[in-house]
């Protein structure tokens, strides 16, 4: 395991354990997100990636371990309080407010802010997402999936977050939209200095964007390294980047099945 930064990281998870009722979803996860960097968490379905993000933002409470943000222990805080600290969470499945207009959605993103910069930030978000600017009076429920994803990212941006948690931003988007979103994520990191924790199944996109990556399996971190080295690791190539035919046997068996009873 290599130490990645000498200064204290912006976000530090120490040995987190989180349960859904009796089911343990995370079994002791530790990870660091240094300020200014993009950190990716990879893993298959059910690996516990989303639960890690929910534990950070306070939607779930860890049974053990601690979450520290900017040196402050925030484990067990209510999610709205964590948000007011400057943690913008873009949840999985673009959870917009469907009956509010695009602009109202964005303004709600700045709900906890009292400063006068909200108007400028609105224009900033519209600058990043011109398709939202054209539809600012439209109810968010009428937007397409890609536009809703952009709205969710833009809404989190309105918080002026120090840290942004992105949960599967490419989920259900076309390759082209995925590319657009990836580009905007990179720009947010470079231009706005937002630190990003990115959870993705699309390992190629995530590793292209990230400085550092963690691989999760069944609630544990099984591998961590710089993104460049992860891209070269044979396991990653095989299981996440699809560079070796994997699961052929499985598919054959699936085809051979006559019925599903």
């Amino acid at each position: 395991m290599t130490e990645q930064a000498s200064t204290a990281p912006l976000l530090e998870l120490k040995n987190i354990e989180t349960h859904y009722g009796p089911v343990m979803a995370i079994r002791g996860v530790s990870l660091n997100v240094p300020a200014g960097q993009v950190v990716a968490v990879l893993g298959a379905n059910g690996a516990g990636k989303t639960t890690v993000l929910k534990t950070i933002s306070g939607a779930m409470e860890p049974q053990k371990g601690s979450v520290a943000f900017g040196g402050q222990n925030i484990s067990g805080w209510a999610p709205d309080r964590v948000a007011r600290l400057g943690v913008g969470h873009v949840p999985e499945g673009r959870e917009v407010f469907p009956f509010l207009t695009v602009e109202e959605n964005l303004r709600m993103g700045a709900y906890s802010r009292k400063d006068a910069g909200v108007k400028d930030d609105l224009e900033l978000v519209y600058g990043y997402f011109p398709s939202l600017a054209e539809r600012r009076r439209l109810a968010a429920g009428f937007l397409s999936g890609g536009q809703q994803q952009m709205l969710a990212v833009g809404r989190a941006l309105m918080l002026r977050p120090a840290l942004m948690l992105l949960d599967e931003p490419s989920l259900g988007l076309s390759p082209r939209l995925t590319h657009d979103i990836a580009e905007i994520i990179a720009r947010l990191n470079a231009e706005q200095g937002v630190t990003l924790l990115l959870v993705e199944q699309n390992a190629k996109m995530a590793l292209d964007l990230a400085d550092y990556g963690y691989v999760m399996e069944l609630g544990r971190v099984v591998m961590e390294d710089t993104a460049a080295r992860l891209k070269d690791a044979t396991d990653i190539k095989e299981f996440y980047l699809g560079m070796k035919e994997e699961g052929v046997r499985g598919r054959r068996r699936w085809k051979a099945r006559k019925t599903w009873r």
Binding site: S57, G58, D80, M108
Partner: peptide
Amino acid sequence: ARVGIALQAASQNQLAAFYVGIPVQ
């Protein structure tokens, strides 16, 4: 009213309302 819109937001999507920092309780 900002609070009025926040109220609608909380009723439309509670979790998202938490995530944007609305004190839902």
